[in-house]
Design a protein around this nucleic acid. Structure first.
Lengths: 210, 210
DNA sequence: CTAGACTGATAACGACTGTTGTCAACACTG
DNA sequence: CAGTGTTGACAACAGTCGTTATCAGTCTAG
């Protein structure tokens, strides 16, 4: 039985109501993911947290996987947007641009640890979630390729090697940021950013010189 | 009701029988993990694959988490042992030692993709599995600290920075190896090892110079 | 041979899963 | 007002989950 929903209700339009419910589901998903991990995410638990009934879950998502993918996508997009914006206003210097991007990305995850958790947890499910995570990491790598000069001016034959480097850098940053945010490595934000910048730049100039 | 088991059965001693059953459970766990991911691992599915009854699962493991941790531990230990052994027989040269360690570690995971999968999947569960993964990555980082000259001769104040570098290198290597093994990045073994070696060395000498 | 360790199959327990359906109460439109 | 979009609470479905227990049958020890 499909849901129709064309009339305003309590002064809120139908589309807006749908959007609010979807947002509540995503938000609750972020919560449940942070509290109990992947296994804590079920249709019923999500709906209970969002104060909705299962019907409205299926209104916004075909599947539990669809919700998880949507969550990870939104976080990944936010990180990417902030990083790109930071690069845009940074000086035309490799070190400065890397630092700006890393600091911006870290800021998003440090500001809401649930989001960091969501990205880390995404490596799990053998379902669409894992594939999506791969795509996101690849997308970040491509982002680095496009935005960072040493990787940008490579011949087609070197692009595969460049992609490998970018993957390495993204994976290393993820691991290090995750360790700091989880508390297993104590490091101030400024030191972390500085360290990551140095590591990235070292790898990039090495890539450039080879 | 505890299981006693003191007598030989079909010519096999009690201890050995327990060991064989435990091994069968671990092996099946590796299979199920590779086929259906974390959610495919249940007491019943594991026992079915190992041709055992649930009783014998609880004979060897307190918990499903205990099984998962045991699996990940054994794989991680194998990788570490091979890497250490490779370093031991490698020339006394940073590049050569890194290459030997990386190649040895990659060899284990490439030889049995189920093991690579197990390590990658380990980043998921909010349970003890995730903690264990953190510890393993940290242990690898410490391993790099102890075995690689540029990191070894650091003052106490620099050790935290060195640990961060090691974490970065391990995380980056994991990501890159995972991408290659999953087929999302085509790269020959020799090129992969060479690339990883270059990246590691570049980061290490940068660490050394700062 | 008998007593008892050992095995494997099966059942039971309550709790949870995804998904769909029903139904009374509410809010809006005409 | 009546009619209907809309909501939330609840039930139902067959299935799986972890965990423990039961029981007939196979093997070994004495």
């Amino acid at each position: 039985m499909a849901i129709v929903q064309v009339r305003p209700y309590r002064g809120v339009a139908a589309d807006e109501r749908r959007g609010l419910r979807r947002q509540a589901l995503l938000e609750t998903g972020l919560d449940r993911l942070a509290e109990d991990g992947l296994s804590g995410v079920s249709v019923r638990s999500i709906c209970a947290g969002a104060r909705l009934t299962p019907r409205y879950f299926y209104e916004s998502f075909d599947d539990l996987d669809a919700l998880l993918v949507a969550i990870v996508d939104s976080v990944a997009a936010e990180v990417a947007q902030r990083a790109i914006a930071a690069i845009a206003v940074a000086p035309d210097d490799l070190s400065a641009q890397v630092r700006a991007a890393v600091d911006a990305g870290y800021g998003v995850l440090a500001g809401d640890r649930r989001k960091a958790n969501a990205l880390l947890v995404a490596g799990a499910g053998h379902g669409p979630l894992r594939d999506r995570r791969q795509e996101i990491i690849m997308a970040y790598a491509e982002l680095a390729l496009v935005n960072l000069p040493p990787l940008r001016r490579l011949t087609a034959t070197d692009r595969r090697r460049a992609r490998a480097t970018a993957l390495f850098l993204v994976g290393g940053a993820a691991e290090l940021i995750g360790a700091v945010l989880s508390g297993s490595l104590r490091l101030s934000r400024s030191r972390l950013v500085e360290q990551l910048t140095n590591l990235w730049v070292a790898a990039l100039v090495q890539q450039d010189g080879t």
